[in-house]
């Protein structure tokens, strides 16, 4: 075994593991997000307040079926050749995202500080 794994390899392995761990940190601190957005071709087509969802329901968009539950959202089924989007599971954390790349759709949960920071304009 020793000839196959060299010292430098271990350094790289540990380095990547540490990097991955570091990138995980913001995820640990993110709480459940409130607002989810469904995007198609980069444009927001639905904005959902996950906290005010009482009954689970589904959204059909471009061949995929998205399931919306209280506090959670995720791809349920999809007709895309990958089927990867479904494997993301249900998202609930702020900042989380899932995408169906072939259909160019995406779900994301907005991070907390994007919420209400003031109106775009005031009319008087």
């Amino acid at each position: 075994m020793k000839e196959y794994v060299k010292r430098g390899d271990l350094v790289i392995l540990i380095g990547v593991l540490v990097l991955s761990g570091l990138l995980y940190v913001p995820l640990l601190f993110s709480r459940g997000g409130t607002v989810a957005e469904v995007l198609s071709d980069g444009e927001v087509v639905e904005r959902i307040d996950l906290d005010s969802v009482n009954e689970p329901y589904t959204i059909k968009i471009r061949g995929s079926v998205i399931l919306v539950e209280p506090g959670k959202i995720g791809y349920l089924e999809s007709d895309c050749p990958n089927g990867e989007c479904v494997r993301f599971g249900m998202l609930s954390r702020a900042g989380a995202a899932a995408a169906c790349v072939p259909n160019r759709t995406m779900i994301r949960i907005l991070s907390a500080n994007r919420e209400k920071d003031g109106p775009d304009a005031v009319t008087y």
Binding site: D9, L23, D41, G42, G95, A97, A99, V101, M106, R108
Partner: peptide
């Protein structure tokens, strides 16, 4: 590539998971 397709970089939250599995598979 997925950034170009979705029009946003939001999927970058996924990087730590990918790195983890990438390290294992690569090893």
């Amino acid at each position: 590539v997925s950034f170009f397709y979705t029009g946003t970089a939001a999927l970058i939250w996924y990087l730590p998971v990918l790195l983890l599995f990438g390290a294992a598979a690569g090893l």
